[in-house]
């Protein structure tokens, strides 16, 4: 296929096919990324035309900033609960749905629905549920835990975020688990039953090990999404009450665009990027090691 010998010929072909893509990709992703690294070493406020080089001061600020640290811990807590619950619920739904329930496709489409709708809308829908419907139920039936809005209590407001996150993502992960469960070879399962393995044994010794690739994908996707969540946070709690539910994306956003502190904001964003990259790479590395062949 390589008929183009000269450099000019090669360049022509490349530019013809990949020129626009390469240009747009570099101007939207690579240049801002590099410029972002530069920004973290300056004290620019976004408006003034002159800014100076201040070394690693922004990074020191990030580590000294208590509010940022709290928001980071809160995000870790949120990620832990949401990822665990999402995957447990998604897996349970998938295993019930693949064990001979009628109307499997109907259920599958139904559970997936929240994923079609943007986070801002999902946040508003649940804001109404938490601040009106549940409070109404709590007052009418005298259920103390529901009688005041969860959104105005710093502890419960955190759990509203987890509930909405799990509700939103579990349908998506369920689809991946269903596909995984349907791919477990029937003959191996039958052979195991003939050898006397019960349902539980087959689940532990055959189905789960065969499903490791699905777990890898689902945990990776849910980690990535929960670390970066912003829309639902904004629409559901706005970070309140008293900043008690401000997840890290919102902190970065506020630092850069509300306090106009671009250098520190970008240093925080960069820190976040490194954490997410490390966590997801470690996760993928270990799950890949656990995969087995049929």
């Amino acid at each position: 296929m390589d008929r183009e010998k000269g450099f000019v010929d090669k360049l022509k072909i490349y530019l013809l096919f990949a020129g626009p893509t390469t240009f747009i990709f570099f101007t939207v992703i690579i240049l801002p990324f590099l410029f972002g690294i530069y920004l973290t070493f300056t004290n620019w406020n976004g408006i003034s035309s002159n800014h100076s080089f201040i070394g690693i001061k922004n990074y020191l600020e990030v580590f000294k900033d208590k509010a940022f640290f709290n928001s980071f811990l809160l995000t870790l807590k949120y990620v832990f609960f949401t990822v665990t619950l999402t995957n447990v619920i998604a897996f349970l739904l998938a295993s019930i749905l693949t064990s001979g329930v009628k109307g499997q496709n109907f259920f599958r489409s139904g559970f997936f629905t929240p994923n079609l709708i943007g986070g801002v809308l999902l946040g508003y829908i649940w804001q109404f549920v938490f601040s009106n419907v549940l409070v109404y139920l709590g007052k009418t039936f005298e259920i103390p835990i529901l009688s005041s809005s969860w959104l105005s209590d710093p502890n419960k407001a955190f759990w509203t975020l987890v509930i909405v996150g799990v509700w939103q993502y579990s349908g998506y992960m369920m689809i991946i688990y269903i596909a995984g469960l349907m791919n477990v070879p029937k003959d191996i399962l039958e052979a195991a039953s003939i050898d006397g393995a019960g349902n539980f044994r087959r689940m532990i010794n055959i189905t789960l090990p065969m499903l490791v690739p699905s777990f890898t994908v689902c945990i990776f996707l849910s980690l990535q999404r929960t670390f970066m969540v912003y829309d639902v946070n904004l629409a559901l709690t706005k970070g309140g009450p008293f900043k008690s539910t401000e997840l890290i994306s919102m902190t970065v956003y506020n630092k850069a665009f509300l306090s106009q502190d671009y250098g520190v904001g970008q240093a925080q964003a960069f820190f976040l990027f490194l954490i997410v990259a490390v966590v997801t790479l470690i996760q993928v590395y270990f799950s890949k090691k656990m995969e087995v062949e049929a």
Partner: peptide, 28 residues
């Protein structure tokens, strides 16, 4: 060789989250 490098850059860039570049993007 150049194409292999380009492909690697495309794939590697996928790990950058949107929040990692939104600030410089708006600046530029």
């Amino acid at each position: 060789k150049f194409n292999k490098i380009m492909f690697f850059i495309f794939v590697a860039s996928m790990i950058i989250p949107f929040q990692g570049i939104m600030i410089p993007l708006v600046n530029i």
